[in-house]
């Protein structure tokens, strides 16, 4: 019963949403260049099915690669800021300032520095936009570690490295995954930003752009739906990883 409810309720909600959308278009008698209706989408998906697969794959691997780099770099930066007060004081204003720059303004800058390197630029943007939350959360997690946790191992003569791997690292995992859920969405936005803006781009963003150029409005809406689906897949991917590596932080139902 409970599992049925768990599956039926979200599916029902999506169906109701599609029904309302279809109804809204039908009642207003909107042409598809104003707003495509859900019934316009399956033909668009079918017509460009191979493009969707190819472009979807492009968007997916660039996002995941950019996010992977962000995890490595963000964790490293967070460790440096978590362990050293001086590093924290020095890096924080820089990071906050960098994070405040709207990333759309970086697209032309990056594409001028690395002309024509579309794959590289896309991955770079996904990385740049998504490492900040990871660095901050790991840094805060490490710097707020209660001294008693350190003392139980330090009093036994354990090295800093042992204390880090046995206590500090696992203890920051819940914060890390909290940040990763934000970062995965950001990386996805970064990827699409470059794909849409770059001339002769690839990926779902470029497909969207080509729909716009050719006046294929159902295609544009179909891309939006594909993006939403891919975003959900990425988000739940992180959720599964969190279950595996930080499932202990979840309290039982109370």
């Amino acid at each position: 019963m409970e599992t049925l409810q768990k599956i039926a309720v979200p599916i029902g909600a999506v169906l109701i949403f599609l029904g309302l959308w279809e109804g809204l278009v039908w009642v207003n008698n909107w042409p598809n260049y104003k707003m495509a209706s859900p019934s316009d989408l399956p033909p668009a998906f079918w017509k460009f099915r191979w493009l969707f697969l190819e472009m979807g794959w492009q968007t997916l691997w660039r996002t995941v690669l950019g996010l992977g780099l962000a995890v490595l770099f963000g964790t490293l930066l967070g460790m440096i800021m978590g362990f050293s007060r001086i590093a924290r004081d020095g890096l924080y204003p820089l990071l906050v300032g960098f994070n405040a720059i709207p990333k759309a303004t970086l697209v032309p800058v990056i594409s001028l520095i690395f002309i024509g390197a579309h794959d590289f630029n896309t991955v770079l943007m996904a990385f740049l936009i998504s490492f900040f939350p990871i660095a901050v959360s790991v840094g805060i997690g490490l710097s707020t570690l209660e001294p008693e946790y350190r003392d139980i191992l330090r009093s036994l003569g354990a090295s800093r490295f042992t204390i880090f791997t046995k206590i500090a690292l696992p203890k920051t995992l819940p914060e890390f995954f909290g940040a990763l859920k934000v970062s995965v969405t950001l990386a996805f936005i970064g990827t699409n930003l470059v794909e849409i803006v770059s001339p002769h781009g690839r990926g779902l963003g470029a497909l969207f752009k080509s729909g716009e150029t050719n006046g294929d409005y159902p295609l544009m809406f179909a891309v939006l739906i594909a993006l939403a689906v891919l975003g959900i897949v990425l988000y739940y991917g992180v959720l599964v990883l969190e279950r595996i590596f930080a499932g202990w932080a979840e309290r039982g139902a109370t």
């Binding site: 139980i152 036994l156 932080a249």
Partner: peptide, 16 residues
């Protein structure tokens, strides 16, 4: 030194 044991008011058990 390794010959010391410590306990605090906060039990500081590792949740994982």
């Amino acid at each position: 030194r390794k010959t010391v044991g410590m306990a605090f008011q906060n039990p500081v058990l590792l949740e994982w």
